[in-house]
Design a protein around this nucleic acid. Sequence first.
DNA 1: AATGAATGAGAGTTCATTCAT
DNA 2: AATGAATGAACTCTCATTCAT
Lengths: 209, 209, 209, 209
Amino acid sequence: MNSHAAIRKPSRAERNQAVRQRLFDAAARIVGERGYAEASVARITDAAGVAQGTFYNHFASRQALLDSLLPELGQQMARAIQDRTAAIRPEAPRELARFEAWFDYLAENPGFLRILNEAEFAAPEAFQRHIANIAGPYHRILIRARDRGELDAFSDLELEVVVHMLMGARSYLGQRFGPAQPPDGAVMRAYARLLAGGLFGERPREPAD
Amino acid sequence: MNSHAAIRKPSRAERNQAVRQRLFDAAARIVGERGYAEASVARITDAAGVAQGTFYNHFASRQALLDSLLPELGQQMARAIQDRTAAIRPEAPRELARFEAWFDYLAENPGFLRILNEAEFAAPEAFQRHIANIAGPYHRILIRARDRGELDAFSDLELEVVVHMLMGARSYLGQRFGPAQPPDGAVMRAYARLLAGGLFGERPREPAD
Amino acid sequence: MNSHAAIRKPSRAERNQAVRQRLFDAAARIVGERGYAEASVARITDAAGVAQGTFYNHFASRQALLDSLLPELGQQMARAIQDRTAAIRPEAPRELARFEAWFDYLAENPGFLRILNEAEFAAPEAFQRHIANIAGPYHRILIRARDRGELDAFSDLELEVVVHMLMGARSYLGQRFGPAQPPDGAVMRAYARLLAGGLFGERPREPAD
Amino acid sequence: MNSHAAIRKPSRAERNQAVRQRLFDAAARIVGERGYAEASVARITDAAGVAQGTFYNHFASRQALLDSLLPELGQQMARAIQDRTAAIRPEAPRELARFEAWFDYLAENPGFLRILNEAEFAAPEAFQRHIANIAGPYHRILIRARDRGELDAFSDLELEVVVHMLMGARSYLGQRFGPAQPPDGAVMRAYARLLAGGLFGERPREPAD
DNA sequence: AATGAATGAGAGTTCATTCAT
DNA sequence: AATGAATGAACTCTCATTCAT
């Protein structure tokens, strides 16, 4: 038993990391709540409880921190969703699980959607990298599912288009229904139906007319 | 022949309107090319060729002009699309025509997508109003199409979800493929297939095979 | 009699010029007394009695004002000396008059030497331009004097060297003896003797020994 | 044979000295190349390869190091020139040798002139001490030469003026012709001629001829 | 003696807005 | 209605110095 470890003072490196993390967290919170424009160095250091000059011991510039927000948080999100959905087969329920996990993640991380969406303008490089990070694996997953026969016969290029459609759909739905979903599960149901049969899909009925 | 009209000096009200329009156009160009943050009053008045003080004879504040950008331009866009698609029946090809018209509009108005997307953060009220302006009529159109039997039997609430999905898809696809679409029409085709039969749609038939 | 003119309010352009001049004068005073490094925008605007932002209505940047100091003041100095010495002939007394006028100018403008000398580092372009402004005409004057036979037969290139020697001598003498000259005119006398006969010049006496 | 000496670890005091010297050299290089203003503690310690805090184990303050630059380097220069010229007699060729040695020193120590000249403003005390260090011995040398009859009959005070003239001449000529002297030796020749016979020197003798 | 993170004052500059002309 | 100078708060970033490790 090392009773010393329990009360041991954090090392210099640990304290350094802790301050850096406090700055990062403060920035994430401010950007999530009020946007990139409001995330001035003064506000961030204030929220982190350090002097303004301290900021530059941990980040090369204000923009450098803002640019690091989305990559880091975006990967957290991707991992969270991946962890919950990797094992599901076939692809149709797995896609629905991904969709559900996305909303759960937004509910638990209320600032994330703003950090993500505003990054397109406030941290464009980070945004493009994030989109590529998400779209690439997503695309590969759909291709493999199609090859296993779990998807209709879309071409690779068509699947890339589909990926961006689904990402865009998620973004807008997160914006519109993220804070408060209708209680009867209409969002999930509409999403499931669209993917299962399209919008104009039940043409088998048409001949019946 | 009204030789008067040809050389008539513009009235005071007309000159007033012209200056206002120059400011509006300058702002739209700057925001479209460089974003809301770059659209300072100084830059706008510079581009419009008037003094800085003149700005406040036409707009109550910088934000007031920025807030007026999207509503005005968004209605132009809605009208352009509506004009090209209102007469098409049934709803399936009409939806595809709307989709196509969207890309055509983006090609002709390269700054519009940025004005629209960044407005979510730079002009939030305007953005919400715009979304409502688009989503409301869109929703009603789909409801009526469903009632005519041109759509699957989605509920009203489900159709509202669908509307936001389609708007999000458009936004992301415009971002990703607006500048340069793949030459073989894959974007349109993928969109059409998804709406026609979903992504996992053909398997019900498979057992039948 | 235009009694109106006596009490007439200064025009907008005049007030504008006056503010600019106040900023310029304040900067000249601060730099002359305390150096370029101390001439912060805050100190300059404070001394001029305007807000900090006003500075940038009149100068593009702090450096732009600092760069304009020496050219303007250097030309004033050149004119003051030229006015007092242009008519003197032949060159020997004229050169002495220039030398004397230099010290008189320094006495009347105590900050000038610092503005000049420190500019080599704080406003290098301005400094080089000033040196060229002074050395060029000076060189031409000496060449013409030589051609009139009022100077020894130095080559053009040698005269350029002489010009820089004399300018350097003035700078150091101004530094050393500008604030307080020895009362018996030793500075003038030494300068005159050196130019008249050099330092090792009276060797004709040597054979006499 | 002391094989110990060959591999002996430097003593604590020696290591201490070595770090101090590295800081001094780094500062000299930075000031010589980019000026005093650019010689921040961070840049100096960076260039010396030590931590920022280490600086204050060796110098009381940034200014203390900057103040120590010129005295130390100035004495090196004085010694280099003295070593090359002490034995020459009489004074006329010796003065020319000093002048030449000055240019040679500048060529070998390209940063020195900047360290010297800018010190007037960035390290004024050091500058005044250096000037005194140089002017004092120089003055005494000339006095003795005059007493030996190798110089014209200038008074002591006049010789002090001459010393400052020559130092100023050197500074300006070093600035103007240090980097690239005209190939035909015009600088040396002009200097020699001025000292030998002045600028207006030959005419008094002309009537006598 | 060496380290390097923390500090907070102060730097230059931009900005939306006001207002006398 | 148009002008453009004046304002002062806010911005990002640099810096010399301190001090616990």
